[in-house]
């Protein structure tokens, strides 16, 4: 078996005290071996990102995961600032910029709207995969493998702890699968994304879960 992959979760939420779902997801990661949780708003309250430190973190991990709420079809501001500063020419792309080549990239996002809203006839007119195109292209330009996003829709309707539990469990399984290299991507179509299709990705014998 391959050596386990190291996962860097770059987490951005400016008002975590108001977000049930993200709090639960974060808490579920805490004890996972091989997963580094990096809370950007906590580390850089005044947006003064330490580029050297961030680049060192990227080098030390194999899987880069952005976890954030989906704000105006993108990420909260600090994550954009992070991309602008950390993904430097000569480091992440361009001449000599090969630091991220061969790594895996994916996003884990939460949206207030339901899945139905993200289609031609819906309020948001575009599918999630379309709206995520800037992230996908960023990953590709940096030479990373882009995985479909893990999306939790309709967070406004998730009020009870019991409703969130399946998502938390799925997120843990996904990260464990990424770490251990046991996921199978061949069954997934171009426009799909994770969670609803998770069972197609996970290995046949379910991974033991201690969530």
């Amino acid at each position: 078996m391959d050596t386990p992959k190291r996962i860097l979760v770059l987490f951005a939420h400016p008002a975590l005290h108001k977000s049930w779902v993200n709090r639960r997801l974060i808490r579920a990661l805490g004890d996972l071996e091989g997963v580094t949780l990096h809370d950007l708003y906590e580390a850089y309250p005044s947006f003064h990102i330490d580029v050297k430190r961030e680049q060192a973190l990227l080098l030390a991990h194999d899987v880069i995961l952005f976890q954030h709420p989906f704000y105006w079809y993108s990420s909260p501001a600090i994550l954009k600032e992070w991309q602008d500063l950390v993904l430097e020419h000569g480091f992440a792309y361009g001449a000599g910029g090969t630091a991220l080549e061969g790594k895996t990239f994916l996003s884990a996002i939460t949206t207030g709207g339901q899945q139905q809203a993200y289609c031609r006839s819906g309020a948001n007119r575009f599918a999630i995969r379309e709206l995520m195109a800037p992230f996908e292209q960023t990953a590709r330009l940096c030479g990373m493998d882009y995985l479909p996003p893990f999306v939790i829709h309709g967070t406004h309707l998730l009020r009870e702890a019991g409703q969130i539990d399946p998502y938390v469990r799925a997120y843990r399984l996904l990260l464990m699968g990424l770490r251990d290299g046991t996921l199978r991507w061949d069954g997934l179509g171009e426009d799909d994304y994770l969670y609803h299709n998770l069972e197609r990705v996970l290995p046949p014998s379910p991974v033991a879960d201690h969530a």
Partner: peptide, 17 residues
Amino acid sequence: ADNDQAWDVAARQGLSQ
């Protein structure tokens, strides 16, 4: 310098950021 370079690189590779 970085900004210039970034634009240059993107242009060279035929990509627009």
